[in-house]
C-alpha cells in the first residue's frame, strides 16, 4: 500500500469517462471516481463488478410480500373473521393492493438503509471527498501510486490531453 494518491479533476462526464477508460487500459489503480451525479456507464468503464444491491432489493421486497400476506391472512381469517359480502374469509384478491404497497415500502426503505450501511454513512459522519467541488460541478478520478513505475508527469500529460483541468498529488494515510 502506498500513501501517495493522484487526484485529477474533469469538467464534464464525457472527458471523465474517456479518462477512466484510458486509466484502465494503462493499468492504473483507480481508487475511486467522484461525480456530482450518477454518470451512466461509469461502473462499466471502471470495470466495477455488478452490484449485489438488486439482490438485497429482491430480498426486501419478498420479505414485505410474505409478511403482509401472512398478517392479512391472520387478521382476516384467523384472529377476527368478518363476513364481507359473503366472500371467503381468506380472499386473496383483497390482499393484493396492500401486499403490493408493503412490498414497495419494504424494498424502498430497506434499500435506503442498505445503501447507508454499505457506504458506512451514519449521522455525524464526515464526508471524505478529494475536492469539495465534486459535489458541485467537477468530476474526480483518484489514482493510487501503486508501484515505482508510476510516473506523475506521464499521468499529468495523459489526463491533460483528455481534458483534465487539474492534476495534483495527495499524500495521506487514507485515500482521499
Amino acid at each position: 500500500m502506498s500513501n501517495r494518491y493522484v487526484v485529477s479533476l474533469f469538467e464534464n462526464e464525457h472527458d471523465l469517462l474517456e479518462a477512466v477508460r484510458t486509466a484502465r487500459e494503462r493499468k492504473f489503480t483507480i481508487v475511486d471516481v467522484h461525480t456530482p451525479y450518477a454518470v451512466h456507464g461509469l461502473d462499466a468503464a471502471m470495470g466495477a463488478r455488478p452490484s449485489w444491491m438488486s439482490w438485497a432489493c429482491a430480498a426486501f421486497g419478498l420479505t414485505g410480500v410474505t409478511t403482509m400476506m401472512a398478517f392479512q391472512y391472520w387478521a382476516a381469517a384467523v384472529d377476527w373473521p368478518v363476513n364481507v359480502g359473503g366472500k371467503p374469509w381468506n380472499s386473496i384478491p383483497a390482499y393484493v393492493p396492500v401486499t403490493f404497497e408493503a412490498m414497495v415500502f419494504a424494498a424502498g426503505l430497506g434499500m435506503v438503509l442498505t445503501f447507508f450501511l454499505a457506504c458506512r454513512l451514519y449521522p455525524g459522519r464526515r464526508a471524505r471527498v478529494p475536492d469539495p467541488r465534486v459535489t458541485d460541478d467537477r468530476f474526480a478520478i483518484v489514482l493510487e501510486e501503486a508501484d515505482a513505475a508510476f510516473d506523475l508527469d506521464d499521468v499529468r500529460r495523459l489526463f491533460g490531453r483528455l481534458g483534465a483541468v487539474e492534476v495534483r498529488e495527495h499524500v495521506s494515510e487514507v485515500a482521499p
Binding site: G85, G86, K87, P93, A94, V96, P97
Partner: peptide
C-alpha cells in the same frame, strides 16, 4: 388488468 378485476370482484 388487476385493478379492473378487483373492483368488479369486490363490489360483486
Amino acid at each position: 388488468w388487476f385493478s379492473q378485476y378487483m373492483l368488479i370482484w369486490y363490489s360483486n
